[in-house]
Design a protein around this nucleic acid. Structure first.
Lengths: 113, 113
DNA sequence: TAAATACTTTGCCAAATGGCTAAGCATGAT
DNA sequence: ATCATGCTTAGCCATTTGGCAAAGTATTTA
């Protein structure tokens, strides 16, 4: 039952923090260097770097050093994976409610005879 | 920028643990009492109850006491909210790559004249 | 009424998380 | 060569997390 899926765990964990979600949202618009990401958060640079490391471990962000600045880009594939998992659960749930509904309809039809 | 969205934080955090995802997946099939959820995890009951509390705080699960057993059901709305957030980020990212592509195409066309 | 079942509460623990400051290193500008 | 910029590393701290065992409460069931 409990298939340990380290990827999903890392992605969901990365997205569970508002600072990291803000970083993802910013990088969805355009690549940015670390300092530009840090400024609007009001957090210290080392703190933001830790958040970035967390996002990189989840493969949500890739970075590349250019001279003395590090450019960060969004890597959207894990977003799609997470989205797929969520959709699958919703689909399962909806399939069950559909089965319940048709069962209820069948009962009503039978009661009418 | 960093709109602290406690709902999303709680939902993503709840889903960041494999045990809790397994619980969600099980409840997507059908409602279950606590012990039935605990059995396949191999974890102690108090531990599973803590996971359930976490899922309830995220509004992913609702429970109802029937006699001495507590029935747990999936509440799929937060799944849809999380899915929506993920989709929005992907959409933003795709919009940007589309803009880049048409810009590149325009450059190529101009170069040809 | 007594025993089994199904949680529930309490208290404990090690490890991870999210934050900081201070000090270091590498590169671009003067 | 010097200085400012932009990251990096190292260490510290309080809180949270995920796990457990033990003991309690509330409902069946016998």
């Amino acid at each position: 039952m409990a298939k340990h899926d380290p990827d999903l765990s890392r992605v969901f964990h990365a997205l569970s923090d508002p600072t990291r979600r803000a970083i993802v949202a910013a990088l969805a618009q355009r690549p940015l260097p670390v300092t530009a990401l840090a400024r609007p958060t009001g957090l210290s640079l080392p703190t933001v770097l830790k958040h970035l490391a967390c996002l990189e471990e989840a493969a949500l962000v890739v970075t590349e050093k250019q001279g003395r600045t590090r450019i960060c880009r969004l890597h959207p594939a894990p977003l799609a994976v997470a989205e797929g998992w969520l959709g699958a659960q919703r689909t399962e749930w909806e399939a069950r409610t559909d089965r319940l509904e048709s069962y209820a309809l069948a009962l009503m039809k039978e009661a009418r005879t």
